[in-house]
Measured scan of single mutants.
Amino acid sequence: SPEVQIAILTEQINNLNEHLRVHKKDHHSRRGLLKMVGKRRRLLAYLRNKDVARYREIVEKLG
């Protein structure tokens, strides 16, 4: 489901952010981070168009 995919991506994004705080010059990982953020944004847009209630619920849960 989109909610699960968004939750997994959010966790991976948070982990990668911590990694990049330590390894500032790791541009390869930064590119992966940007791809993940874009994918999460697309999934959220899809969910917002399909079911606003589910969209609001996941945004509330994940912050």
Results as ranks from 00 to 15, higher is better:
Gln12Pro: 01
Glu11Gly: 05
Arg30Ile: 12
Glu57Arg: 05
Val22Gly: 08
Leu20Gln: 02
Asp51Pro: 00
His23Gln: 04
Val22Gln: 11
Gln12Asn: 06
Met36Cys: 05
Lys24Gly: 13
Leu9Met: 04
Met36Ala: 12
Leu62Val: 04
Leu43Gly: 00
Lys24Tyr: 08
Lys61Cys: 09
Lys50Trp: 09
Arg42Gln: 10
Asp51Cys: 05
Gly63Glu: 08
Glu18Asp: 08
Ala45Asn: 10
Asp51Phe: 03
Lys61Ile: 10
Leu47Pro: 00
Gln5Asp: 07
Leu62Trp: 05
Val52Lys: 13
Leu33Phe: 05
Leu20Asp: 02
Asn14Arg: 10
Ile58Val: 09
Asp51Val: 02
Glu57Phe: 04
Ser1Gly: 08
Lys35Gln: 11
Ile8Cys: 11
Arg41Cys: 15
Ala45Arg: 11
Asn49Cys: 14
Asp26Glu: 05
Lys35His: 08
Arg42Met: 09
Ser29Lys: 08
Ser1Cys: 14
Asn49Tyr: 09
Asp26Tyr: 04
Arg30Asp: 05
Leu43Lys: 01
His28Val: 14
Leu9Asp: 00
Ser1Met: 07
Lys25Glu: 14
Lys50Asn: 12
Asn14Tyr: 08
Asn17Ile: 15
Gln12Val: 07
Val37Leu: 14
Leu43Gln: 01
Arg31Asp: 07
His23Lys: 04
Arg31Tyr: 08
Glu18His: 09
Arg48Thr: 00
Lys61Tyr: 09
Tyr55Trp: 15
Gln12Leu: 14
Val22Asn: 11
Asp26Val: 03
Met36Tyr: 06
Leu62Gly: 02
Leu43Thr: 00
Pro2Tyr: 14
Glu3His: 03
Lys61Asn: 07
Arg48Pro: 00
Glu18Ile: 08
Ala53Trp: 05
His23Tyr: 06
Leu9Gly: 00
Arg54Phe: 04
Lys61Gly: 08
Arg30Phe: 10
Asn49Ser: 12
Leu62Gln: 02
Lys25Arg: 10
Arg54Leu: 14
Glu11Cys: 13
Lys25Ser: 13
Arg21Ile: 06
Ile6Asn: 00
Gly38Tyr: 14
Ala53Asp: 14
Arg31Met: 11
His27Leu: 09
Leu43His: 01
Glu60His: 10
Leu33Asn: 01
Gly63Asp: 07
Gln12Cys: 13
Lys50Val: 15
Glu3Asp: 05
Leu33Gly: 01
Arg40Phe: 11
Leu20Val: 04
Val22Cys: 14
Ile8Ala: 09
Glu57Asn: 06
Lys61Pro: 01
Ile13Tyr: 01
Lys61Phe: 09
His28Gly: 10
His28Ser: 14
Glu57Asp: 08
Gly63Thr: 12
Val4Phe: 10
Thr10Phe: 03
Gly38Gln: 13
Val4Cys: 14
Leu43Pro: 00
Arg48Ser: 03
Arg40Asn: 01
Ser1Asp: 12
Glu11Phe: 07
Leu9Trp: 04
Glu3Ala: 07
Asn15Thr: 12
Arg48Tyr: 13
Ala7Asn: 07
Gly32His: 15
Gln5Met: 11
Ile58Gln: 03
Arg54Gln: 05
Leu44Cys: 08
Ala7Val: 09
Arg31Ile: 11
Glu57Leu: 06
Ile8Pro: 01
Asn17Ser: 13
Asp51Ser: 05
Val37Tyr: 14
Lys35Cys: 11
Gly32Tyr: 15
Val37Ile: 14
Pro2Ala: 12
Asn14Ala: 07
Val22Ile: 13
Glu60Lys: 12
Gly38Ile: 15
Ala53Tyr: 07
Arg56Ile: 13
Thr10Met: 07
Arg56Gln: 13
Thr10Cys: 06
Arg48Phe: 13
Arg56Glu: 11
Asp26Leu: 04
Leu9Thr: 01
Leu20Lys: 02
Glu57Gly: 03
Val4His: 13
His19Met: 05
Gly38Ser: 13
Ala53Ile: 11
Pro2Asn: 03
Leu47Ser: 00
Val4Trp: 12
Met36Trp: 03
Tyr46Thr: 09
Gly38Pro: 00
Val4Tyr: 15
Asn14Pro: 01
Ser29Ala: 14
Val22Pro: 03
Asp26Gln: 04
Asn15Trp: 14
Met36Ile: 08
His23Ser: 05
His23Ile: 03
Glu57Tyr: 05
His28Thr: 11
Ser29Tyr: 05
Arg42Gly: 04
His27Gln: 11
Tyr55Asn: 02
Asn14Gln: 08
Ser29Val: 12
Ile6Met: 02
Tyr55Phe: 08
Arg31Ser: 07
Glu60Asn: 09
Ile6Cys: 02
Val4Pro: 03
Leu43Arg: 00
Gly63Ala: 14
Asp51Thr: 01
Arg41Asn: 11
Tyr46Glu: 15
Leu44Pro: 00
Leu44Tyr: 02
Lys50Ile: 15
His23Asn: 11
Tyr46Pro: 00
Met36Lys: 06
Glu18Gly: 04
Tyr46Ala: 11
Arg40Ser: 02
Glu3Ile: 06
Lys39Trp: 08
Gly32Glu: 15
Asn17Gln: 14
His28Pro: 06
Asn14Trp: 06
Glu60Gly: 07
Pro2Asp: 05
Val52Met: 13
Gly38Lys: 14
Gln12Glu: 06
Val4Asn: 11
Met36Asp: 01
His23Leu: 03
Gln12Phe: 09
Lys50Cys: 12
Asn14His: 09
His28Tyr: 08
His27Phe: 13
Leu33Cys: 08
Lys25Thr: 12
Arg48Asn: 02
Val4Ser: 10
Asn15Leu: 13
Arg48Trp: 09
Glu57Ile: 06
Ala45His: 09
Leu33Arg: 04
Lys50His: 14
Gly63Met: 15
Val22Asp: 10
Asn17Arg: 15
Arg40Leu: 13
Ala53Phe: 08
Arg40Lys: 03
Glu3Phe: 05
His19Glu: 04
Arg56Met: 14
Arg42Cys: 11
Tyr55Pro: 01
Arg21Val: 05
Val4Gly: 06
Glu3Asn: 03
Val37Gln: 07
Ile58Pro: 00
Lys35Thr: 08
Leu33Ala: 02
Ile13Phe: 02
Ser29His: 12
Val59Cys: 13
Ile6Trp: 03
Leu20Ala: 02
Ile13Ser: 00
Gly32Asp: 14
Asp51Asn: 08
Leu16Ile: 07
Val22Tyr: 11
Ala53Cys: 11
Glu60Cys: 10
Arg21Cys: 08
Ser1Trp: 15
Leu20Pro: 01
Gln12Lys: 14
Arg54Ala: 12
Ala7Lys: 07
Arg40Asp: 00
Leu9Asn: 01
Glu18Ala: 11
Leu9Cys: 03
Leu47Gly: 00
Lys24Met: 08
Ala7Pro: 02
His23Thr: 04
Glu18Lys: 10
Ile13Trp: 01
Glu3Trp: 06
Lys35Glu: 13
Ala53His: 13
Gly63His: 14
Leu43Glu: 01
Ala53Gly: 10
Val37Gly: 01
Ala53Glu: 15
Leu16Glu: 02
Arg54Met: 09
His28Met: 11
Leu62Met: 09
Arg54Val: 07
Val37Glu: 07
Asp51Glu: 04
